[in-house]
């Protein structure tokens, strides 16, 4: 991954408390797994920003290397990689996700 891509990813993760790398946008998700995470965050009333990786091929591949995670979507909370669709769903279903947000100082 190019250095400037890495820097771009680092900066954007640092500058956004809750950031979802997804395919499409929250209003128009282009993949069921991305839509599922948007659904969880919306259901919990969490304010989040998103990056449409379909609009930037460098970020689309770079974020996989950056997180050592092979798929999209990817959720970051306060600079920390939380997981992809299956982990977010599992955490939401067993109540871990609201605890996670509260512990991170994000009220839900």
């Amino acid at each position: 991954m190019e250095d400037n891509t890495k820097e771009k990813i680092k900066d954007i993760i640092r500058d956004n408390e809750v950031l979802l790398f997804m395919k499409g946008t929250p209003v128009m998700p282009q993949c069921g797994f991305s839509a599922a995470v948007v659904g969880v965050l919306t259901h919990m009333g969490v304010k989040f920003n998103s990056i449409n990786v379909l609009e930037d091929a460098e970020i689309r591949e770079g974020i996989k290397e950056y997180s050592d995670w092979p798929t999209i979507p990817q959720l970051y909370v306060k600079n920390e990689f939380v997981g992809g669709c299956d982990i977010i769903r599992e955490m939401h279903e067993n109540g871990e996700l609201s605890d996670y947000f509260n512990n991170a100082g994000i009220s839900v």
């Binding site: 995670w69 997981g83 982990i87």
Partner: peptide, 10 residues
């Protein structure tokens, strides 16, 4: 952690 477990599978 769950993330680590999944990375092991990947």
């Amino acid at each position: 952690s769950r993330v680590q477990q999944h990375q092991m599978i990947y």
